[in-house]
Amino acid sequence: MNLLELLGYFNYWVFAIVLMVGLYTVIAKINLVKKLIGLSIFQSAVFLMYITMDKVEGGTAPIILKGMEGNVFSNPLPQVLILTAIVVGVSTLALGLAIVVRIYESYGTIEEDEILDAD
């Protein structure tokens, strides 16, 4: 097993671990801000998965400058998808935080169990 192969598996394992750390934070933590932090870790893990598959051995970033036409380039498509996904992620987060701020204003707490008790 050469190093690149190891890194390949390692990337996917890191993806799996980080994904689960994020999901665990979302499900198990009861603080709403912490849940959102978990959500953003969870999404970042998926970005890592997509970007991992774009790599080509010996490739460079897909910017074809003059005189470089024969080079090997990494795959541009996953990059485009993840650019979109990153922006989607920050949008969701902003909306979530706005809701958290309003929850704090109306309930005086951002802990899920205390909110449930209040109603």
Binding site: S40, S44, F47, I51, T52, D54, K55, V56, G59, T60, A61, P62, I63, F73, S74, P78, Q79, I82, L83, I86, V87, G89, V90, L93, A94, L97
Partner: peptide, 21 residues
């Protein structure tokens, strides 16, 4: 992993704007 555009966005949006919000 050769994703320069994504790296730039993640740094600006993920590390910058998200943190501020």
């Amino acid at each position: 992993l050769d994703a320069a555009d994504v790296a730039l966005t993640e740094a600006a949006v993920g590390a910058g704007i998200t943190t501020v919000i």
